[in-house]
């Protein structure tokens, strides 16, 4: 039943800028580093000689959490806006489909779209390194994949939360403001304290790649994401649709 809703959702997102956003996010990240390395090519290649790929990954990694938080805010918001704008919820939910399937379909679609973003980021990283004439034999494939996917898994709680908020709030300004605030503060909150920063889910995308015990943050991301998604579904099933 969820697949039916999903196939319908894929049709609805046509021409709504979601695909554009999905590609422009990772391409923007790569373009930023292309500029960085292009302008200071000699200096950087000398400074990081022998560990060029690793240096590039660290530079990209700085911006991965903030882009992810923007992504997990904007994608659910655009998705919900399609239904909110003419209050299509009342039409959609009067169809013979369970509300749980409707909610799960929106969640699955967000995950699929953001996974595509992650794949574009991985491909972009390889292409950038290749164009900067980094040694192909040295390419740390495992690390590249980790950088591109682990922070996303760790940000699943945020995705579930924003999907829940965006679906329930007609006024999308509120979740978007919250999302932008979280995205910007995610740059600093990792540095507050070495003892309890790791307890804040906002830092999990960063720690899932940069910190020790990466698997812990990824696992916690999956777990909390699933819990919030369940809570959101439960609430959505019971609420009145006006």
């Amino acid at each position: 039943m969820m697949l039916k809703a999903l196939s319908s959702d894929f049709l609805k997102i046509r021409g709504k800028g979601l695909w554009f956003l999905i590609f422009i996010g990772p391409i923007g990240l790569i373009a930023m580093q292309a500029l960085n390395y292009g302008l200071r090519y000699d200096y950087l290649t000398q400074k990081y000689a022998g560990k060029l790929w690793e240096a590039l990954l660290v530079d990209i990694q700085m911006f991965v959490p903030i882009s992810l938080f923007l992504g997990v805010t904007l994608i659910p918001s655009l998705l919900s806006h399609i239904e909110h704008s003419t209050n299509a919820w009342k039409q959609l939910l009067a169809l013979p489909i369970s509300r749980g399937a409707v909610f799960r379909s929106k969640f699955a679609l967000s995950v699929i779209l953001l996974t595509i973003s992650c794949m574009v980021l991985a491909a972009g990283t390889v292409i950038l390194g290749f164009s900067l004439r980094f040694e192909l034999a040295d390419m740390p494939v495992g690390e590249i994949l980790k950088l591109c996917f682990l922070p996303f898994f760790a940000s699943l709680p945020a995705l579930a939360l924003f999907l829940w908020l965006c679906i329930n709030m007609r006024n999308q300004a509120i979740p978007i403001t919250l999302g932008v605030l979280i995205a910007i503060s995610s740059v600093f909150t990792g540095l507050i304290s070495s003892t309890w920063s790791k307890w804040l889910p906002i830092n999990w995308p960063m720690f899932s790649f940069a910190g020790p015990q990466q698997e812990l943050f990824v696992g916690a991301g999956f777990l909390l994401g699933a819990v919030i998604c369940l809570l959101g579904t439960f609430h959505f099933i019971r609420k009145d649709v006006s």
Binding site: T86, Q91, L95
Partner: peptide, 30 residues
């Protein structure tokens, strides 16, 4: 609900899609 068709208050539609695609989005669920 499988046997019921409804139009509640103001019409709901997906403005960016054509009439055919609007119906297709519903047809995929039905």
């Amino acid at each position: 609900l499988r046997r019921v068709g409804s139009l509640v208050e103001y019409p709901s539609y997906y403005g960016h899609l054509s009439a055919t695609d609007n119906l297709e989005a519903i047809r995929r669920i039905l």
